[in-house]
């Protein structure tokens, strides 16, 4: 009895691991097709990701924003939403943090906090319209969040170039002032103390969802809308909260890349240092089973793929973007419940 209970609890983990392996295998096929050596590439990737202490810290630095964007998607799923607006909310969060950190002089301590909070609020600001459109007009969140992502893309480039650019250096915004920077944890790496804020946020979301009445109602509204309505839970309130917490998370992710990520300490005018986190977070959330704590581990895995991917690009010549393609394949595999039924049937025989 106890053994089967354990097996039941471990099954999602096993499914995630098997799917990741399948994704890596498919990635190897893509390498072979274009004449790369997958063994060399994956060796380089692994060595790059975990080869030394500083590599491990670098992997964690890559994982930090993904833990947050995974929450944005996961908390949406918990309320029955498909919220893919993290991408745009990350941009806006980065803009908010840059404006405070680069343009305003504040006392140390307060400055970091202010930049972080304004970044998070900008994320919320960008999450609000799709939530209201959904509640008032029933606009599907896939369309509205994607449109807001693209508007945010052009808007934040506009703000970055017209209002926040560093004089004489057109490629990036003004850097965060030293008072607005999170301290670096180890010289030579880009992991800063912002990771503790992020981990605290993830644990906070976990406690909120599973430890409070409001969090329970939020999950109920997603899992069983009829029961929720019968119990007097306002589904609109749950939906709004889910969007807003997602916005907080994504805004923090954007801020963390400006005030918590050396060496640039600023936003690139092309948004290159914040682009893609929102969509990567979707895969991370699914691998982490839409759970804030599972998301932490999935984010570390994906951070390893990204950091190791750069090493792989350098040593094996394989474009690191392949890692993103593997992420997509993993998501497709995870969308299929029948794979697991088929696998189990085969195993039982």
């Amino acid at each position: 009895m106890k053994g089967s209970e354990l097996a039941r609890r471990m099954r999602p983990l096993l499914e995630s691991v098997v799917t990741i392996l399948l994704g890596l295998l498919a990635g190897a096929l893509f390498m072979i097709v274009f004449g790369y050596n997958p063994v060399n590439a994956y060796q380089a990737l692994f060595k790059g990701a975990f080869g030394s202490m500083s590599d491990v810290l670098e992997t964690l630095a890559f994982a930090t924003p993904l833990m947050l964007t995974a929450i944005t998607f996961a908390i949406g799923v918990k309320t029955g939403l498909f919220n893919i607006g993290a991408e745009g909310q990350v941009y806006m969060g980065a803009i908010g943090a840059t404006a405070i950190a680069g343009k305003m002089a504040l006392p140390p301590g307060l400055h970091v906090a202010a930049a972080t909070i304004v970044g998070m609020l900008m994320g919320v600001l960008w999450a609000l319209p799709p939530a209201l459109l959904k509640i008032w007009r029933g606009v599907h969140e896939v369309i509205s969040t994607i449109m807001f992502n693209w508007i945010a893309f052009h808007l934040s480039m506009y703000i970055a170039i017209y209002y926040l650019a560093e004089p004489g250096r057109a490629e990036r915004t003004v850097p965060a002032m030293p008072t607005a920077r999170y301290p670096i944890l180890m010289e030579g790496t880009s992991l800063t103390a912002v990771i503790f804020v992020v981990l605290a946020f993830c644990v906070g979301v976990y406690i909120y969802l599973w430890g409070t009445r409001a969090g329970y109602e939020l999950r109920l509204a997603g899992e069983n809308p009829d029961a929720a309505r019968y119990a007097g839970v306002s589904s609109n309130r749950a939906l709004l909260l889910s969007f807003l917490i997602g916005g907080l998370a994504a805004g923090l992710a954007g801020a963390s890349q400006v005030i918590g990520r050396p060496p640039s300490w600023s936003l690139y005018a092309t948004l290159g240092n914040v682009a893609g986190f929102g969509f990567d977070g979707l895969g991370v959330a699914l691998i982490g089973r839409n759970h804030p704590i599972g998301g932490i581990f999935a984010a570390i895995l994906f951070g390893a793929l990204q950091h190791g991917g750069r090493y792989m690009e350098y040593h094996a010549g394989v474009c690191s973007e392949l890692v993103r393609a593997i992420n997509g394949l993993i998501v497709i595999a995870l969308s299929v419940p029948e794979i697991w039924a088929i696998v189990r049937r085969r195993l039982k025989r």
Partner: peptide, 22 residues
């Protein structure tokens, strides 16, 4: 596969996002 179509479709988008630069 009786997949969740929105997740599978989004998977295609993510796949393309990485495959195209690759």
């Amino acid at each position: 596969g009786r997949a969740d179509q929105v997740v599978a479709g989004m998977g295609i988008n993510l796949f393309a996002l990485g495959l195209v630069p690759y």
